[in-house]
Amino acid sequence: MSKIKHVILSGGVGSRLWPLSRKNQPKQYLNLFKEGSLFGMTIKRNQFLTDSLLVVGNKDNYKLSEETLDSMQVAHQQIIEAYPRNTAAAIAFAALASDPTDILLVTPSDHLIIGDEAYAEAITAGVDKARSGYLVTFGIQATKPETGYGYIEYEDDQVRSFREKPNQDTAESFLERGNFLWNSGMFCFRADTLLEELKLHAPNVYSAALKTWKSSHDGWLDGALSKEIPSISIDYAVMERSTKIRVVKTAFEWSDLGSFESLYDYLVDVGHPVDEFGNMSIGTTQYTAFVGLKDTILVSTADALLMVQKEKSQDVKHIYNILERHQSKLIE
């Protein structure tokens, strides 16, 4: 029987959660929850469903991963990217580091999932399909017309199409039609199946990733060779092109916590205070008064203050991008 390997992709920065999330302390390592960090929660959630753990990170955050893994005393392998080249390359490295028949359960490191039994059922279903030679994606039941997620159009376990982040009207139409799921960014497949499909549909990514992997040393990837790999997501490279795709419709609660709106919803659920107009402060114990404002989030850190209306929270990434262009220390 093939082994099941949990592959955690931990290279994200979480720019929409600035100023809480920074390059040197991305959102997946922040202890925002009573259970600890999202990274640690991801490890625990999958420990008893898989046989081994592989973390694909980068030179900026691998030590943060090591600290969590060591504190949890979890055996693991790490692949460290000098220059991250998106998820197609990261997953290719994981497959190249595995036995061909290994089943790879690929998950982000920064998602919030509630419902252990429903999660285990979904993973078991995904592993079964992966053993049959399919590339499996996991779809989340859409509960609102979310414009910050990609969507999967489906029928039974067949994927009819992948849709990019829609505008509000399109998202509402997806919800009304009822055959669209949120794209969770979680996948399951045999290592050799993924590499075969990557070689078929994105040969330039495959060849450059293989060359880089062959030159790696103790999990560290060469920077110059990494720069030659096209930066493309696994969705574009393989999932939207392959004929071997299947989807598992899940029943657990899920959030990518990719914005202050989703963090706000979580914090409200666990009892974080808001005023009578839905305003919330995060990161400060100082008395904070909101006058003439509604559904506004105040985020306070030692060196920055952010005020954002909840429904505009996706736009925080623009502030991060401006600071990045100016090489500001506020994102470090």
Rank of each mutant, 00 (worst) to 15 (best):
I8M: 08
E261R: 11
V74A: 12
V55D: 04
I123D: 00
I140T: 03
D315Y: 12
H272A: 09
A75E: 15
A120I: 00
V7N: 02
G178R: 07
E164H: 11
R190A: 12
D128H: 08
E35G: 06
D169R: 11
K211G: 07
R241C: 03
H326L: 13
Y206F: 15
T147L: 06
G223M: 08
A125C: 07
Q286V: 08
D60I: 09
H111W: 00
N61S: 14
G12F: 03
L263C: 06
T101L: 12
T124E: 14
G12H: 05
I232F: 04
L298Q: 07
E311L: 09
Y134C: 08
M239W: 04
K227P: 00
K227N: 09
K310I: 03
S215G: 05
E67P: 02
L17R: 05
G292H: 05
K317M: 07
E35Y: 13
S216W: 02
I322Q: 15
N58M: 04
R163W: 10
V159H: 03
I297Q: 05
E155L: 15
E172M: 13
G115F: 02
K5W: 02
R325I: 06
D156M: 10
D99G: 06
W220E: 12
I91S: 01
S215E: 11
R131A: 10
K165Q: 12
S226K: 02
E155Y: 10
T243M: 10
E197S: 05
E196T: 13
A90M: 14
K129R: 12
K317T: 12
P26L: 01
A94Y: 02
A224T: 09
T143M: 11
H6A: 08
L135R: 01
A142I: 07
S259T: 09
D218H: 10
K129S: 12
T107Q: 03
Q78P: 03
I79K: 02
D269K: 14
Q78L: 11
